[in-house]
């Protein structure tokens, strides 16, 4: 079974994408399943690391937090760009020692940090587990360290580790 369907979630989403891009008809379903089977075999030949999800139930909470933060930081960055040089704004690098080691969790964290305007992921030292981010409006360096760790890292560690 697992040889025919090595990555069931990926293959199911591929079928859905195929149907969305073409039309919802039985013929397209057959073609989509064929494409998904071929892609599954191709991906299995590459032997990628299979991510393990420990806590499915926490994912909606993470998505809600991230969406809220993206809206909030959008507003903050817009007001800084349009506000002009009324207030002295300092931007700078913050290095954060992370406990999270799971590659998938780190990938999700990079998507979160980068899609939030105002923070950008620059470097991650895998040997020492230190992350380097650049913050657009840096008021309190220690505060950002605390924010990334408590708001995202602990949740991601619970989900992936």
């Amino acid at each position: 079974m697992s040889r025919i369907f090595p990555y069931p979630l990926m293959m199911a989403s591929l079928v859905v994408v195929w149907l969305v891009l073409t039309s919802f008809s039985p013929g397209q379903l057959v073609v989509g399943v064929a494409v998904a089977l071929l892609a599954g075999q191709g991906l299995a030949a590459l032997h990628p690391v299979k991510p393990r999800l420990r806590r499915w139930d926490l994912i909606p909470k993470l998505v809600a937090i991230v969406l809220y933060d993206i809206v909030r930081s959008n507003i903050a960055v817009v007001s800084i760009i349009l506000g002009g040089p009324r207030r002295v704004r300092r931007s700078g690098f913050v290095s954060i020692p992370l406990e999270l080691r799971d590659p998938t969790g780190l990938a999700v964290l990079s998507v979160i940090v980068t899609s939030t305007p105002g923070t950008a992921w620059f470097d991650y030292n895998a040997a020492r587990g230190v992350l380097l981010i650049h913050v657009f409006d840096l008021v309190d360096e220690e505060g950002w360290r605390e924010l990334i760790k408590s708001r995202y890292e602990h949740l991601l560690m619970e989900i992936f580790e």
Binding site: I70, N74, V77, I81, S91, T116, G118, T119, A120, F136
Partner: peptide, 19 residues
């Protein structure tokens, strides 16, 4: 266009790519 350093500028286009 307006921000001064590259490291500041890298934040601005994320407005367009997120919301």
């Amino acid at each position: 266009y307006r921000l001064r350093s590259f490291y500041d500028r890298i934040h601005a286009p994320t407005l367009g790519t997120s919301w």
